[in-house]
């Protein structure tokens, strides 16, 4: 790797990136980076509710990496301590709105399910999203699932603009899943 990082640094700065993380993610890193996200938002003078919304989207996204990223590094035998790979970016648009982006590898067979869920969410207005959230909150958790299946709905509810996402073919038959959520000021 080229060690001259100034160009990368400048590019990120020019895009008003508050924070970038790429690599293995564990619960402890989420807690630590989460604190930094909050401090950065305080420095940007974000309103209490805005800061909490950005933080909550950050948590939902990184915990999705922790629960669902297909790329993992098992450090111990038990499942709980495995590390999963992904990347997360918190930044600010020229309009002043904050955004949280997240990317990780997924299995190709999971693409249609994630894509159709996101497509469905895009068609719903705020009231419909609220109703779906409440319905899903009361539903029985799918066996073997680590999450409650609420993260994407939660993000759609808090987003100021429709959620943007893409699936890019990656090596070894994987896909790289990217998602971006914009939060109002």
């Amino acid at each position: 790797m080229d060690i001259a990082m100034y160009k990368l640094y400048q590019d990120l700065k020019a895009k008003n990136i508050l924070l970038t993380y790429c690599g293995a993610i564990a619960q402890e890193s989420i807690e630590g980076i989460g604190d930094t996200v909050r401090k950065s938002l305080a420095a940007e003078e974000a309103e209490t509710s805005t800061a909490l919304t950005v933080f909550s989207i950050f948590i939902e996204q990184v915990q999705n990496i922790l629960n669902y990223s297909a790329e993992k590094l098992a450090v111990r035998q038990d499942d709980e301590n495995e590390l999963r790979f992904g990347m997360v970016i918190v930044g600010r648009e020229n309009s002043g709105k904050f955004f949280v982006c997240c990317g990780n590898k997924i299995f190709s067979q999971d693409v249609p399910m994630i894509e159709s869920r996101l497509d469905e969410l895009k068609k719903l207005d705020k009231e419909e999203l609220k109703a779906l959230y409440k319905k899903q909150r009361r539903s029985v958790q799918e066996p073997g699932s680590k999450g409650a299946g609420l993260g994407l709905i939660e993000m759609a509810r808090r987003a100021a603009e429709p959620i943007a996402y893409s699936f890019e073919p990656a090596e070894d038959g994987w896909f790289f899943f990217s998602i971006k959520v914009v939060v109002g000021r």
Binding site: S56, E60, R137, R138, G147, A148, L150, G151, I153, E154
Partner: peptide, 17 residues
């Protein structure tokens, strides 16, 4: 509880139920 994630929300609902 000033902040809780979506999976906690499900557990709180279970408690209230």
């Amino acid at each position: 509880v000033a902040y809780f994630n979506s999976s906690t929300s499900k557990v709180f609902m279970t408690i209230f139920d």
